[in-house]
Amino acid sequence: MDQNEITLNQLQNEVNDWIQTIGVRYFSELTNLAILVEEVGELSRLMARKYGDQSFKSGESAEQIPSEIGDILFVLTCLANQMGISLQDVIKSTIQKNTNRDLNRHKNNPKL
């Protein structure tokens, strides 16, 4: 692993440290859910302009997409921290669930 890369556990610790020192405290879970939805909407708006039929408004650009993904990851990490959920554990579980469900499904899909 590159020394600049971090594990999901390290990400959770880093976000928690930031919240405790700079953010003062976590917003409520419901507030963070609303913020997450807002951030996903901002990503959606940019994606619609880059890959869809809409054009960019003044001040918008596709270069903002990575920042919006970062914002989503940050808020999602806050929610996981607040609820005591390990991102490492849930992604492993989700990959296993998807593997079991879709082992042959996509291979046999003539649309792909």
Results as ranks from 00 to 15, higher is better:
Ile35Phe: 08
Asn108Asp: 14
Leu43Asp: 01
Tyr26Met: 03
Leu36Pro: 06
Ala48Lys: 11
Thr31Ala: 12
Asn81Thr: 06
Ser44Gln: 12
Thr94Trp: 01
Gln82Met: 15
Asn81Leu: 07
Thr99Cys: 10
Glu42Gly: 06
Ile85Ala: 06
Leu112Glu: 00
Tyr26Gln: 05
Asn16Val: 00
Lys107Gln: 12
Ala80Tyr: 05
Gln88Asp: 15
Lys111Tyr: 10
Arg25His: 08
Asn100Gly: 07
Gly41Ile: 06
Asn16Leu: 03
Thr31Cys: 04
Thr7Gln: 04
Thr7Lys: 05
Glu68Asn: 05
Thr94Arg: 15
Ile91Gly: 01
Asp71Asn: 03
Ile91Arg: 14
Met47Glu: 09
Glu5Ser: 14
Phe74Gly: 05
Glu38Tyr: 11
Ser55Tyr: 03
Asn16Gly: 01
Asn98Thr: 07
Gly41Leu: 08
Ile35Arg: 11
Thr21Lys: 14
Gln10Gly: 04
Lys57Trp: 01
Ile69His: 00
Gln12Arg: 01
Val40Cys: 12
Lys92His: 13
Gly41His: 03
Lys111Arg: 14
Gln64Tyr: 00
Glu42Trp: 03
Asp71Thr: 00
Ile22Gln: 13
His106Asp: 09
Ser44Ile: 00
Thr94Ile: 12
Leu79Ile: 15
Ile6Asp: 01
Lys107Ser: 11
Leu36Gly: 10
Glu68His: 02
Ser67Met: 03
Asn104Gly: 09
Ile19Met: 10
Thr77Met: 08
Ile22Lys: 15
Arg49Lys: 15
Pro110Tyr: 06
Arg105Ala: 13
Tyr26Phe: 14
Gly41Glu: 03
Ala80Trp: 00
